[in-house]
Design a protein around this nucleic acid. Structure first.
Length: 639
DNA sequence: GAGCACTGC
């Protein structure tokens, strides 16, 4: 909201309406300006009230701290360090821009050491020593007040924490309370972040973007801004989501600075040059240009906005045509849109679920094939967030806890399921807190999952897939049958399939779009060398330092043949193909014929159920479902 | 061997 506009409302409205209470949650008002208008007014608490914050850039910070930045290239011979860095693959336009600046002329007024440091400074790599020096400078030379440090991610928080612990001055735990703040770190004592620390102790919070808007720490007087944040983007060519560090926008920088002035005037230390700040984008790229679009495309169809491409082309900043094409193809592949881009009956059901189409399909399939509870739990976790927390020091224990939930299932999704079920049991006996603590789980996330599950049941009941009067048992015949649960995961997550190929004692993983991928180290499957079954399905593939499959479940040929994509005859020989020929299945003709026949019958039942949700699969489809279950249990392990 | 953040229905 416009600041002046807000003040006018306050000035004109408040005197005439003393009974009126304005609650301004997201506005920020300059405190001096505010007091001009309200000199005689009684004190009104306005959450958005802010004080001025002085702004220092890298060059000023270097002058103050006398910190000397050492170039990574200092270890090498030669004097063209900056040129060497220009060959750095991680470089970006803003970093490049600064590399081209003539330091000695542009920073004439600055000291020799500052100019040397600016020469050595690299925009592509954060100098944690500089962060440490800035914190130390504030603690030694500036007044009281908490320090908030904005960093890009987990890694930087963790490393800086270690550095501070080892620092002779800052390592004194009586004088300094250093708190990491990251969305997936367990916070031992939540209150410590918000509370004023004991007298003579300074609070230092090492945070990600979470402190930019989600969490407000009132007593912050100093902000240290490294200028970077991890940002999602979408690579339409490789159909790949990315999570990479990038320069923040001016809007973000402004917001970070504003975190300092909530109780008194503050100071913001920016650890990048003013030149970089001035060249930053005004705002972050709109989300529509940074994410996969399948859910959006589905809703465009359900709201009858006409052809998807032409509708999205009218957006203020239209997404790339290839991104739109990818989304439409995906919706066709999972059967939500037909060849003419019209909604299918399945597509119409998916519109009613507030979920990514794949996860929505998994939920529907779970309700149809009587695995409702697992489907609800896994859908809630995938749609919301991972309930497993990531502790700083006890990584091995946390990994072990997650693996023990997975058992020998080779599935992160089963681990989620078992963790949730364990929590429900513990809750029944009032042991919820200990259970979460011992197993590295977030009680808040688990509670949210439970609420979401209830919401999903209501929605499934609205569209006729669940009849609450029949009781839970009717929908959970196969809920304890792990083969069946994995098959439902396959049905939902397809075409997100990974081929596992044996390479000696290890396994290599391949996807159709990008070829070789890695299993994310936090996955229970990261420590598995040889998988009992030849495929994995996954819900998230993200490029960070490598292309990682974040969550996966090991599945059989039969799961794919029954619940995967359409079966097509092989171009060569007499096998079966799937995923445009990427996946190939071979067996004797009689076996393949049986499989094809069974699949045809299964699809018939599924089609009828989707078109008539009240149709009872467990009665008329009993024989076919039983045959499919038997097939899933007979998976051969020749691979 | 690695984990920005939020929102809506």
């Amino acid at each position: 909201m416009n600041e002046d506009f807000l003040l006018i409302i306050l000035r004109d409205l408040l005197p005439r309406r003393p009974d009126l209470r304005l609650i301004l949650m997201s506005a920020t008002i300059n405190a001096e300006l505010f007091s001009q208008y309200f000199r005689d007014a009684p004190t009104i608490h306005i959450p958005g009230l802010t004080y001025p914050v002085e702004e220092l850039f890298l060059e000023d910070v270097l002058e103050k701290t006398r910190y000397l930045i050492k170039s990574e290239a200092d270890n090498f011979q030669g004097n063209s360090r900056r040129r060497m860095r220009q060959q750095d693959s991680k470089r970006d336009p803003l970093t490049d821009l600064f590399e081209d600046v003539d330091i000695s002329s542009h920073y004439k007024g600055y000291s020799m050491t500052t100019r040397q440091s600016l020469e050595a400074w690299s925009g592509s790599q954060l100098d944690l020593g500089l962060v440490e020096a800035s914190i130390e400078y504030i603690c030694r030379c500036e007044g009281e007040g908490a320090i908030l440090v904005f960093l890009a991610g987990w890694d930087e928080i963790s490393k800086l924490l270690d550095k501070i612990k080892a620092n002779n001055f800052l390592g004194d735990t009586r004088k300094f309370l250093v708190l990491p703040l990251h969305g997936s770190m367990p916070t031992v004592n939540q209150r410590e972040i918000f509370d004023r620390p004991p007298a003579n102790t300074r609070k230092i919070v090492l945070a990600t973007n979470i402190a930019e808007s989600s969490i407000t720490i009132d007593d912050v007087v100093y902000v240290i801004d490294c200028g970077k944040a991890k940002e999602t983007s979408y690579d339409a060519l490789n159909k790949l989501a990315c999570l990479l560090p990038s320069w923040i926008s001016k809007a973000s920088a402004h917001q970070r600075r504003g975190r300092a002035g909530r109780v008194q005037p503050g100071v913001c230390y920016r650890l990048y040059p003013k030149l970089i700040h001035d060249a930053m984008a005004q705002y972050q790229l709109p989300e529509i240009l940074r994410t996969p679009l399948q859910e959006l495309c589905l809703h465009i169809k359900s709201l009858q906005f006409g052809a998807i491409e032409s509708f999205l082309a009218k957006a203020l900043q239209p997404p790339d045509a290839l991104s739109v094409h990818n989304a439409i193809e995906l919706l066709k592949t999972i059967g939500a849109l037909d060849d003419t881009e019209e909604l299918t009956p399945l597509g119409r059901h998916l519109c009613t679920l507030p979920l990514d189409p794949n996860i929505g399909k998994m939920l529907l399939m779970g309700s149809i094939f009587q695995c409702l509870n697992p489907a609800l739990t896994i859908a809630a976790a995938l749609a919301h967030r991972d309930p497993f927390v990531l502790p700083l020091n006890r990584k091995e224990e946390a990994d072990a806890a997650k693996r023990s939930f997975a058992g020998d299932s080779c599935s992160d999704h089963i681990a989620l399921l078992k963790a949730f079920e364990g929590w429900k049991d513990a809750k029944r006996y009032g042991k919820e807190r200990t259970f979460c603590w011992e197993n590295f789980l977030s009680p808040v996330t688990l509670q949210m999952m439970e609420d979401m599950r209830n919401q999903f049941v209501d929605l499934l009941s609205d569209i006729g897939f669940v009849d609450k009067s029949r009781g839970a048992k009717a929908y959970n015949e196969y809920s304890n049958d792990l083969e069946m649960v994995c098959a439902i995961l396959c049905a939902g997550l397809y075409p997100n399939v990974v081929q596992c190929k044996r390479r000696g004692k290890r396994t290599a993983f391949y996807t159709k779009e990008v070829g070789k991928v890695d299993i994310h180290p936090a996955s229970v499957n990261a420590s598995v060398h040889l998988f009992p079954l030849p495929y994995l399905v996954y819900s998230e593939k993200v490029k960070t330092s490598s292309i990682y499959i974040r969550d996966s479940t090991n599945i059989s040929d039969y799961s794919l043949l029954m619940f995967g994509g359409n079966l097509t005859p092989s171009k060569s020989g007499d096998g079966i193909e799937m995923l445009g020929g990427y996946l190939h299945f071979s067996a004797s003709k009689s076996v393949l014929d049986l499989i094809k026949k069974l699949r045809v019958e299964l699809d018939k039942i599924l089609k009828r159920k989707i078109e008539e949700p009240h149709f009872d699969v467990s009665v008329e489809g009993k024989g076919v479902v039983a045959a499919v279950v038997e097939l899933l249990h007979s998976q051969d392990i020749r691979y």
